[in-house]
Design a protein around this nucleic acid. Structure first.
Lengths: 219, 219
DNA sequence: GAAGAACCGTACCGTACGGTACCTATTCCG
DNA sequence: CGGAATAGGTACCGTACGGTACGGTTCTTC
């Protein structure tokens, strides 16, 4: 039993390679391009192995989600003490990371897949994606927001509500637009900055020590 | 319900009936349930007619989007003079309408369809959905926001940015969650109210350093 | 009332998918 | 060394789809 990372604990290296190839196919051509025959051909494995490892096609899809998310690790360095500037910086980094993740082609492809399947499988993949995929990033955001409150820098009644507000400010309709195939998206860094400005304006305790960023936000 | 309004201008009544049936099938069982044979059977028409009217399957899907959106008319009663209360009221109504539209099963089904196809058709359906589907609601929102600014009740640099902020506050991640199949969603009215509170706190002219006036209303 | 268009129902075709079966090659391990 | 386990290659099956063709039926129109 190798002391591997938790990532490859659930899958053998061979299986991981096959899953990576499956993700590549999915990203390239959508779920129509992800056929068992095609995957077997592209990954140099047999269909029989696929069915042995993953059961059926849905099992394969679930494994792909699990595999991809086991690779995503959020850096959780929220133990430090927070100044107002540090909080703003952390929020901005988080917002930018969130947008980058959502805009990633693998994430988009998996979300498209789960959304497409949600009508016919009782949204099993959707649940998987929401629960396992967002847990990490949610925890990180909530830790950050809680730390902001503990440090007296943020003020809100319900942390959950505050987080959803922040999420909405950061993402707006960008996620759905990207899912629909819109390509020309704005600068993530700029969007993150504006969202953080608005969030702090809403829930910050100290009334703006200079609204410079927001005032110069002419686009 | 099916009177010959401007809705059915582009399609004959028979075609409209078939498209309505197609939407029903799509809502019921997702895009897998929307087969040409199935539609012909369910709508009591022949496959030949389908191909004659719509060209091919993609043409049918595009026609469905066009048909559905020709039925959605937003009540645009934004000509009046605005008081602060009227603005808040209008914003809340708009937010609730927006959430209701996004949560509608036909909207969800069409968005799922377009998202599923976006990988393989160059997001033609996605463009259609975004351009024709959101134009109405966008115009209404922008008119409202502009009116707010003209009346001196709102303050912002860029109306587009302000609208996107509002959209994010209203919708947050609810749309994607619903697309992924999450069922238990919160009360739209309450979500709309909170979003309007936050938006006015951000962009209202009478800025107070306290919470929004009725932020502690229903909870 | 008949010519003709529109349309319905059905049968049909080629294709491609998910899934299974069978056979071989490599590897592992006593 | 040799047998079991694992995995690759391929051929195959049933099914269901998109799309087409054709005969019969209804509706329009002159």
């Amino acid at each position: 039993m190798p002391a591997d990372t938790a990532a490859s604990a659930k899958f053998t290296p061979r299986q991981s390679a096959v899953l990576a190839e499956a993700l590549r196919l999915l990203v390239e051509g959508g779920d129509k391009a992800l056929t068992t025959s095609g995957l077997a051909r592209a990954a140099n494995c047999s269909k029989e192995s696929l069915y042995k490892w993953f059961g059926d096609r849905d099992g394969l899809l679930a494994a792909m989600i699990s595999f991809q998310q086991s690779k995503v690790r959020t850096s959780d360095r929220s133990g430090e003490r927070l100044s107002a500037e540090a909080l703003r910086e952390h929020l901005e980094v988080f917002a930018r990371d969130l947008l980058d993740v959502l805009a990633g082609d693998v994430s988009l492809a998996l979300n498209r897949l789960a959304i497409g399947q949600s009508s016919r499988d009782g949204s099993k993949l959707g649940k998987l994606l929401l629960e396992h995929g967002r847990r990490e990033i949610d925890r990180r955001a909530r830790a950050l927001i809680d730390a902001g409150k503990r440090s007296g820098l943020l003020r809100f009644a319900d942390a959950d509500e505050a987080y959803h507000t922040f999420y909405g400010l950061v993402v707006s309709d960008l996620h759905v637009r990207m899912l629909l195939g819109e390509t020309g998206l704005k600068d993530n860094g700029r969007q993150a900055q504006k969202a953080v400005d608005a969030f702090i304006a809403l829930h910050g305790t100290q009334k703006d020590s200079g609204e410079a960023p927001r005032a110069s936000a002419a686009r």
